[in-house]
């Protein structure tokens, strides 16, 4: 459906210019994501399967992972293998990530088998796929900064792969400080922004209709959604 209202007359055109860049940005935001699209309290009736809850479960576990990571950050890297409380928070962080990847993969399978990229939703799929790849990178740098035998060993293994394609010259997995920064600043930032973009795209395009679904007839439709003027 067309997003823009048709311009009618000079008065409307002038009103449209009001507010400079800020006004234009607001109009764009409201046009692309009006409040009822951003926070709808109804969903299409075909959205009736447990598979739909795995998106929100993924976001929830991401939030738990970030929150437990923030608690680890409070005391810093000297803490999590040296105190019992630190170790428990470290365990929380690990298991939230296991759950995050678990739910994300099920979400991914679901969306694949629903061909959820149909109807101008390719960007939603692509941002989701990049989210998955970014999560693998974030989890990997997390494994590198655990400060245990496993992180020691996988850093030694991973350096060969990264060096072989020239990345290792800049992205040095044996440098704990660099990996910690990537893990707690750069990658979470990228993942957070991608996730926000992904979720906003879902809200903007709405839930993908079933494969080969035909929109109900107009009279049926007006009975269904009696909101349009």
């Amino acid at each position: 459906m067309s997003d823009s209202a048709s311009p009618s007359g000079n008065a409307t055109r002038d009103a449209k210019r009001v507010g400079g860049w800020t006004g234009a940005a607001r109009r764009y935001a409201v046009r692309t994501l009006p409040p009822e699209k951003l926070l709808p309290d109804t969903q299409p009736a075909y959205m009736a399967s447990w598979i739909y809850v795995f998106g929100v479960l993924t976001v929830s576990s991401l939030i738990v992972a970030v929150a437990t990571g923030c608690v680890l950050a409070l005391e810093g890297p000297g803490w999590w293998h040296a105190s019992s409380v630190g170790k428990y928070v470290n365990s929380l962080h690990l298991w939230s990530v296991e759950l995050f990847m678990f739910f994300m993969v099920i979400h991914l399978w679901g969306k694949f088998f629903m061909a959820a990229w149909r109807g101008r939703r390719a960007m939603t799929w692509m941002t989701g796929a990049v989210c998955f790849l970014a999560s693998v990178g974030t989890a990997f740098t997390g494994y590198l900064v655990q400060q245990n035998f496993d992180s020691q060993w996988i850093s030694g293994q991973a350096k060969d792969g990264l060096n072989a394609v020239g990345i290792g010259a800049w992205f040095n997995v044996l440098d704990f400080g660099q990996m910690l920064m990537w893990h707690i600043v750069l990658l979470p930032l990228v993942l957070g922004l991608l996730t926000a973009w992904h979720v906003l795209l879902v809200r903007r395009r709405g839930i993908v209709p079933p494969i080969d679904a035909l929109a109900p007839e107009p009279d049926e439709q007006s009975a269904a959604t009696a909101v349009q003027p």
Binding site: P40, D41, S60, I207, A224
Partner: peptide, 27 residues
């Protein structure tokens, strides 16, 4: 072209409630 989801019959769905339950469950 794929039909617009808004063209289909709807049912009440509380996204924020769902999100809160999911968050508590995961925690």
């Amino acid at each position: 072209a794929e039909p617009d989801p808004a063209a289909f019959p709807t049912r009440p769905y509380d996204l924020l409630k769902e999100f809160t339950i999911a968050l508590v469950a995961v925690a």
